[in-house]
Design a protein around this nucleic acid. Structure first.
Lengths: 230, 230
DNA sequence: TCCTTATCCATACGTTGTACGATTATGTAC
DNA sequence: GTACATAATCGTACAACGTATGGATAAGGA
């Protein structure tokens, strides 16, 4: 045994260094600190002071690590429920804001989380309860509730994806839509050019927060219209 | 030269086998046929009957290949514009449907396309013109047009992401939301459970197309509410 | 003609995910 | 206690990956 002091073989009881949770927590740390590309099985093992192959006793492969991370992020979500103290649309908005905030906590994982359909575990399902409660209070039919919830969630996902993508582009200052449109020959997109130039007059800088609020307002107004039609 | 018949060095005029476009087209074929993971520089070179390193004369690295693919997909988009022949909301919906259809043409690329912010090239910007035209006709203020367009696009992105993710899960039959909720202890999400069970009575199977239409209707209704408030 | 530049090829390096098998401890059955 | 299946770790090794470096050949302008 030319093992440099390291022990090989099963650790003594209580001395196990690994567990699924410990591995995922370490992985989350790496991703948060250094980005998703920094997460390699070797790096992860080194962080845990363990041989790379030991990880495979707890997780079948790297894909499982990534899926586990997505699961972790969802598990960390906590959507508030103000209950009947506020109107249904405000209740819905609060849940939506909390959902977006949860996704923003780990921006380097956004892509993984949003695209991992297998992360649709019980955790995720339970997360949606507040949306359903608010929509139920609004007085929609079951099918309408289902569809409205999906629409809202899709909007949040799309918004979060955009937000995460732009933030990830650190190596090149994000060429934002506004400046790009101004550089465009107007005849290729006349309406777009005119609108964006009008905007520029107001000295507008795009702001994610107000963009999100605007989307929420449009959606709740649309849902309210459905309610009124009944 | 132990070169097995292959010529090395610059090809004769008119015999060039590579170009940025040829490479990207081949790459798109691989991704469409076998998924994004099948796309390696070596595989791509083999498809083109070329040495892997030759690719680097036309594209700086693999990331550039992926970005180029995203660009290709956007370039393939064609949003119709029925013009004033239909109401503004129908005009808006038609553009949205075309946009979704375009993204669906290459499901294996959806994630790449949607997350590649640098794909926001002139092509993408021009693509948005029909949205702006419809919203302009609706009678919104510039800022409202800008925000409504973003909201609609975010919804389409989120929807497409979900659609692509589910379809990609071929190795495991997608455990869809409905069946999963039914297996859930009701007390963990009472409203959700009740709603979904009511849905089940109708024998509902989730359908992406109707889900998309529902989202479009909610959004246009919300935008119409903004118009009315002016 | 000479020189620069464009296009393609061969070799090679470091890194990655992980298959395989060895090693040591635990927990259960006798 | 002794035997044995199982669990947790480590060491070695391999194929595949992206790409750096440098060489070969031809194109095209000076």
């Amino acid at each position: 045994m030319v093992n440099g002091g390291k022990r090989s073989g099963r650790p003594r009881a209580g001395e196990e260094r690994l567990s699924r949770d410990a591995i995922l927590t370490a992985a989350l740390g790496i991703v948060d600190d250094e980005g998703i590309d920094a997460l390699t099985m070797r790096r992860l093992a080194a962080t845990l002071k363990v041989n790379p192959m030991s990880l495979y006793h707890h997780l079948p492969n790297k894909a499982a690590v990534l899926a586990g991370l997505a699961e972790l992020v969802f598990a960390g979500l906590e959507l508030p429920d103000p209950g009947d103290a506020v109107p249904w649309d405000e209740q819905l908005k609060q849940a939506a804001r909390a959902y977006r905030d949860g996704l923003r906590q780990h921006p380097n994982l956004a892509l993984q989380v949003l695209s991992d359909a297998s992360a649709v575990s019980d955790v995720v399902v339970v997360t949606m309860e507040p949306f359903y409660r608010a929509l139920d209070r609004a007085g929609l039919a079951p099918r309408e509730i289902f569809e409205a919830a999906n629409t809202l969630i899709d909007f949040i996902h799309g918004f979060s994806l955009g937000e995460a993508s732009v933030r990830a582009e650190t190596f090149e200052l994000a060429p934002d839509l506004l400046t790009r449109v101004r550089a465009l020959p107007a005849h290729k997109a006349p309406t777009l050019s005119r609108i964006v130039n009008d905007l520029g007059a107001d000295g507008l800088a795009y702001d994610f927060d107000s963009g999100f609020e605007s989307g929420l307002s449009t959606l709740t107004a649309g849902i309210a219209a459905t309610v009124r039609r009944r």
